[in-house]
Design a protein around this nucleic acid. Structure first.
Lengths: 220, 220
DNA sequence: GTAATTTATGTCAGTCGATGACAGATGACA
DNA sequence: TGTCATCTGTCATCGACTGACATAAATTAC
């Protein structure tokens, strides 16, 4: 890795660190981009060359995990029922977050704390979940051989699972300090969701209830 | 109603109409508040006296329905199981939207079209659903006699139902023109969700699985 | 090692959304 | 009619964000 890339990486990290320090002191909205840039001694214009927006910086820590979930789902055996595959994928996600959070717990706690303190950031976080739902739905539909635009069940199933994750995090709002409790909550809601769905509903093959996905429906 | 109030109502409507006309022509982002204000011949400052933000204007049509759902849930018989009560409340919601949409179909179609065309508005719409989830959760918990902060099941149940609504709307994205298909989709996903949840999971009383809600937990 | 090329950064100017403050216009009401 | 509350326009300002251009630095070629 050349000097140039190293410097960039360094600046990006410095911006993020300075930003979160200010966020925790003054709040997300009260902190201006100019302040962040000044703290790192770069021009405000440069800030926007590293992060598309102040919000993007604040939510940057979520990005990496998106790929973890989709990759984990894709790695599940093809004959596994979709509900179990999704649950397993998200357990993998939880393990991954746990792992990285263990390396630098304070960092993770800071991130969540800032996010939970700002309604706008919570909203933006929800939007990210909606994005990932689309990817997961496509994969579930592929596995089940149905068209996600005609058959709502893949979407529903994915929405149920992501609801579990979301509620798990929400329930732990406030004491995000104790990571064990946080992740324990998420695992609990995930388990509750798996047991809440009637076993017959989401069989290996969806069967023929729901929107009829005629076997030879033209693709595309 | 005095002249003053009539004028206000009139201006508000004019702003909304002018805005949506421009949104459909140029898109939400490309339309400036100045343009909207100019189209109605008021100052930009006045625009913000009617709507807190451009986004608020675009999503104004959702506001009234929020109250419909919560009121409908509160009106359900106390001995009805929560899943059925929630489903019934949302069917009431669908009826209400259908009714108003029938009065002025184009208006409703315009609103949805603009919203679906802009990721930021979709996100903001999701945020509204999150708000209403909180209210519904409180009511469900109250009915079940559990503490929504200790027992995740009310949240989960509500999240499942709102997932159904959301997916129903999403599935109909694109051909929002046919309102019947749209609402039919929502009803379908709602029905699918009700049948997806195992009947034993959400009994009249939650029973004792999940977080233990000790019978005599102090209220408040 | 120097020249040529790429690329990151700073500066500047500008747009747009949003807000506070003040003054003038207009409807409400005695 | 005259007072009062309230709506509105104007002005100034902030903060997020973007495009354009010049400079400085690193990379590569020679």
């Amino acid at each position: 890795m050349g000097l140039r890339e190293r410097k960039k990486h360094q600046t990006r990290l410095a911006l993020s660190d300075a930003a979160f320090e200010l966020f925790l002191e003054q709040g997300f909205e009260a902190t201006t981009v100019d302040q962040i840039a000044a703290a790192v001694d770069v021009s405000p214009r440069t800030f926007f060359r590293y992060f598309g927006s102040k919000e993007e910086l604040a939510l940057d820590f979520m990005v990496e995990y998106d790929e973890v979930v989709t990759a984990a789902l894709a790695a599940r055996p093809a004959d596994e029922p979709p509900l179990q595959a999704l649950a397993a994928a998200y357990r993998q996600f939880i393990r991954e977050v746990r792992r990285t959070a263990a390396i630098d717990p304070e960092r993770y706690v800071r991130h969540r704390h800032v996010m939970e303190a700002n309604p706008h950031l919570i909203t933006a976080g929800l939007a990210r979940m909606a994005d990932i739902e689309t990817k997961l739905t496509a994969e579930v539909a592929r596995r089940q051989g149905t068209d996600p635009d005609a058959d709502p069940r893949p979407r529903l199933l994915v929405a149920f699972i992501t609801s579990a994750i979301r509620v798990g995090f929400e329930c732990a709002t406030g004491d995000a300090g104790s990571l064990d409790k946080l992740f324990g909550n998420v695992e609990k809601t995930l388990a509750l969701t798996v047991e809440a769905l009637s076993p017959g509903w989401c069989q290996f093959n969806f069967g023929s209830s729901g929107q009829v996905a005629t076997k030879a429906s033209s693709p595309g």
